[in-house]
């Protein structure tokens, strides 16, 4: 795809990092408040698609570095594995396990398996959307 619109290209380079940061914010926010892995993944995937609009497939592939299929695999793996710790604690599959930590910068932090699951979902969503979009875009070119 050739980049016809100067406006799109200029704003795109500004928006891309903002959207990616916003997606991480959504990802980390979403256990007790609106947000979560799925929406965050869609935002991140949309950001990459925006990049695809004003450049071409090879440079977008270069931008994301890893193959989307790897993301898909690792995400699915992480999401499935996040159900396992519950079993070792004597609960049913996918029972949430929480650890409370005091980290240097963040202060009191609760970390748990739902976060792991959300990160997995995040990777699966990005992986799926980009696999489909990139293969469609490659077929077009």
């Amino acid at each position: 795809m050739n980049s016809l619109s100067l406006v799109l290209r200029t704003t795109g380079y500004f928006l891309l990092p903002l959207l990616l940061i916003f997606s991480v914010f959504l990802l980390l926010r979403g256990h007790d408040e609106p947000g979560g892995g799925f929406i965050a993944g869609l935002v991140a995937a949309a950001a990459v698609c925006l990049h695809l609009f004003f450049t071409d497939v090879p440079s977008t592939r270069k931008l994301i570095h890893i193959d989307p299929r790897d993301l898909l695999g690792w995400g699915l793996f992480l999401a499935t594995v996040s159900g396992v710790p519950g079993v070792f604690m004597g609960d049913a599959f996918f029972t949430s396990q929480w650890v409370e930590l005091t980290l240097p910068i963040l202060g009191e932090t609760k970390l748990g398996t739902p976060l792991l699951f959300d990160i997995g979902v995040y990777a699966v969503v990005i992986g799926t959307v980009l696999t489909i979009v990139l293969s469609l875009a490659e077929a077009e070119e």
Binding site: F38, T128, V129, I132, S135, L136, A139
Partner: peptide, 17 residues
């Protein structure tokens, strides 16, 4: 909606092929 999205994305790829 999520499932529908996935399935329809596939359907679009399919009709293109």
């Amino acid at each position: 909606i999520v499932i529908g999205f996935g399935v329809l994305a596939f359907a679009v790829v399919l009709i293109h092929r």
